[in-house]
Amino acid sequence: MDHRQQVRQFVLKNFLFTDDANALADGDSLIGNGIVDSTGILELIGFLEETHGIRIAPEEMVPANFDSIDAISAFLARRLAA
């Protein structure tokens, strides 16, 4: 499974409580739509750190990196390539 699919499934299962892939588009705002809140973001970051063995620094915790499946995928791709 690629990174995008993995993140998608995590968000669907943990924040939307569904397996329905149509419930969320990759470009949808996770924060603007109330899908990820101040506690959800910690779960999401914990999942990414654990799955990929990375440490996400405070300065990386910005909406540009986490506001959509697209943004998270792009962030992961950059971090894992580094």
Binding site: I31, V36, D37, S38, G40, I41, P58, M61, V62, P63
Partner: peptide
Amino acid sequence: EPNLVFPHL
């Protein structure tokens, strides 16, 4: 500020 998702911001 829109929300508290990123408290350091």
